[in-house]
């Protein structure tokens, strides 16, 4: 079942990020298998409302993943 804002509101902040990460990771892994852990870590720094939106919208997720990859590669260079 889809993750909702009310489900998140029922658990502590740290657990909210855990729930979001568990949902986002497999989607990101499909796009970037080798960087999925790092990308998920970066995206979890965003607001939960944005993360929920990314779970609902592949387009939105893909765009943020692309941004994260660019930042990650620049950082690693």
């Amino acid at each position: 079942q889809p993750l909702t804002a009310s489900m998140l509101a029922a658990v502590p902040p740290q657990e909210q990020k855990q729930m979001l990460g568990e949902r986002l990771f497999p989607l990101i892994q499909d796009m970037h298998p080798s960087l999925a852990g790092k990308i998920t870590g970066m995206l979890l720094e965003m607001d939960n409302s944005e993360l929920l939106h990314m779970l609902e919208s592949t387009e939105s997720l893909r765009s943020k993943v692309d941004e994260a990859v660019a930042v990650l590669k620049a950082h690693q260079a």
């Binding site: 990020k17 855990q18 852990g37 870590g41 720094e45 950082h75």
Partner: peptide, 22 residues
């Protein structure tokens, strides 16, 4: 920050430790 350990890595099934100050 821009240190070597950034960004914190998420691993499924492992408790997330990336954001300690939320």
């Amino acid at each position: 920050g821009t240190n070597a350990s950034w960004p914190p890595e998420f691993c499924p099934g492992v408790p997330w430790k990336g954001l300690q100050n939320i």
